[in-house]
Amino acid sequence: MRSLWAALALGAVLVLGGGTATGQPAGQPGAGGPAKAGALRPHRAGLPKARPAGAPHAKGALHGKGAAHAKAAPGGGHGGGHAVHVNWYRASPPPGESQPFLATLFNFIVLGLLLGRFGYPPIRDFVKARHETISKDLADAQRLRAEAEARLKEYEAKIANLDHEIATLLQGIRAEGEAERARIIAAADEQAQRLRRDAESTIAQDMKRARHEIEQEAVTAAIGTAERILRERITDADQRGFVERYLVSLATEAPGATPTPPGRGAA
């Protein structure tokens, strides 16, 4: 708000200063502000007829009433020392005189107050929001840039150590491979030995069982043959001899004991 008032005051000073300018050369272009402002209309009637060649046509230049004196000035310039007449308050100025300066100033102040009352807050808020957004964007951008730089440094460091890491990894992989190879070979050896022991045990068991079966078959066959021969060759006399020996064993052995079978001892 202060800056607005300062701007208004500066505008007023410039207007007043422009209106009271003295000794300003008539040929100076643009001096006193834009002509379209309408604050002071140029006095065309007072334009010098003998304008020096090449001098710019100061269409919007402020000219006071003294411009009429340019007719008498040699070379087309203003003469120094002439005061500019300002219409301060006359509502109906005579032809060739500007509008009242106080009314114009009043309009300007009213316009400034209206702009300050209704135009300034939205503009202020907008500018403030815009300022904050830009500040935030700038902060984010700085943060992102810092992060990117940090990441860049990190990657650069990694890239710098990449060869060493690759070498270390390869060395580790080779060591693990060697250890795994040794372990697999040891396990295979152990399994082979176990299989060999199992096979040897199985073979021994099979051989033992086969030997037992062969012996059993041989004994069974021998006993069967012996029984068959005995059946064929035992006579009644032999049967009587068996009973006789059984009777002898009954008589000689203690009660409760199994008598000596026939065919043993005396047989």
Partner: peptide, 11 residues
Amino acid sequence: VTCDGSIRYQM
């Protein structure tokens, strides 16, 4: 009490 004096038993 069983007293087995048979040839079958001996075999």
